[in-house]
C-alpha cells in the first residue's frame, strides 16, 4: 500500500496555483503498465518512428559517433505500456514487441 500523501493547506500552498516546473519526471507512470514493450537492438534500424509516436516521451534517444540520433532503449519509469511503439515499428523490422508485464 502507498502512503497517504500529506495535503497542503491554503496557508502552505504557493499562491496562484503555481507548481514547480518539470515535476512530471518524478511521477512514475511506469507502474500503470500491464504490457511492456521490449526493444531488440539487433533488429532496430533507428528510423525513430517509435520515438515520434510515443505519447509519453519514453523512447530514449542518444547521439552516435556521427552525432546522429539513435534509439538507446525504453524508459520503463514512465512508459505506460500503450503499445503504440510496437504498432508503429515497420512490419518488416518488428524491433519492438509487447510482452505481458511480470509483477
Amino acid at each position: 500500500m502507498k502512503k497517504e500523501e500529506k495535503k497542503l493547506t491554503a496557508a502552505e500552498l504557493p499562491i496562484g496555483g503555481i507548481i514547480e516546473a518539470g515535476t512530471a519526471v518524478n511521477f512514475h507512470t511506469g507502474s500503470w503498465r500491464s504490457e511492456r514493450p521490449v526493444w531488440n537492438k539487433e533488429k532496430c534500424i533507428n528510423c525513430l518512428v517509435c520515438w515520434i509516436s510515443c505519447p509519453d516521451s519514453s523512447i530514449k534517444v542518444v547521439p552516435d559517433e556521427r552525432k546522429t540520433s539513435i534509439i538507446a532503449g525504453i524508459d520503463y519509469d514512465h512508459c505506460k505500456g500503450c503499445g503504440i511503439c510496437a504498432k508503429e515499428c515497420p512490419p518488416k523490422v518488428k524491433a519492438i514487441v509487447m510482452e505481458q508485464e511480470r509483477k
Partner: peptide, 12 residues
C-alpha cells in the same frame, strides 16, 4: 522555472 495554470481538482 515553474508551471503556471496547471489543472487543480477537488483536492486543491
Amino acid at each position: 522555472p515553474y508551471t503556471l495554470g496547471a489543472i487543480d481538482l477537488q483536492d486543491y
